[in-house]
Amino acid sequence: MILETQNLRKYFGEVHAVDNVNFKVKEEEIVAIIGPNGAGKTTLVNVITGYLKPDGGKIIFMGKDITNASIYERIRAGIVRSFQLVNIFEGLSAFDNIRVAINSRERKEGKIFSLIDRDTTVTKEALQILDLFGLPKDTLARDLPHGDRKLLDVATAFALKPKLLLLDEPTSGVSTREKNKIMDVIIPAARKEKVSLVVIEHDMDIVFNYSDRIVVMHQGKILFEGKPDEVREHTEVKRVLLVG
């Protein structure tokens, strides 16, 4: 088990966004979280990654209690995320977006007198990542088409070499064809790098095709979890997903 939450709680007043959730991720597993809007999927990810403080419960990552760890400590431990809306460094080129992340991972993001272009190892790695995700090098992030912006967001996360990567709707707002293209890049990359992947996703075809295990959330609780086939046949889940 790489990640385990124990009775994790996050309330917004009367709304129990995350209500005693015991969520588990195994090593190198690809888990999809599905559920209607307002089910608490994003809040769960926010609490796990330190964006929000939990109201109760514990988060165990690789055997260590990280419930009260800072965002920085979590990233150093290997928990990395992307956001639902594209969240990239808009004024930097795709290349620099990746290099900033690699520098941070290598803890040389604060070197004042080393020119970024002179660092051949970082440059080489960044080019490989751009190549893997099929991204152009010098285009400013803000000038990329939407699908590429989504990809760059994920690519930056990969550049941090996480152990656990949580992606909040990596394919939102793109065409079905592009969705598959994005997932066809992400999944093999995760397998190759032995990253455990948690994906929040609305598109059921994507979920059933690409995940090892599916967790269904509803009203802040885990309603059901199981293999894609088991979820597909589960009547209660169908009802919740259809009715919302």
């Binding site: 990654t49 964006y51 965002i71 920085y72 990233i75 150093r76 990395v80 995320r81 956001f83 969240n87 990239i88 460094f89 808009e90 004024g91 930097l92 620099d96 977006n97 290099r99 900033v100 992340a101 520098n103 941070s104 991972r105 040389k108 993001e109 604060g110 070197k111 004042i112 007198f113 080393s114 020119l115 970024i116 272009d117 660092d119 930056t156 941090l160």
Partner: peptide, 23 residues
């Protein structure tokens, strides 16, 4: 044009993303 300079520009562009990049 240093690592530091690019890090600053990253912070300028997106504070939250910078934080979640470990900066």
């Amino acid at each position: 044009n240093s690592n530091f300079g690019k890090t600053l520009q990253a912070i300028r562009d997106n504070e939250i993303r910078a934080q979640f990049t470990g900066i």
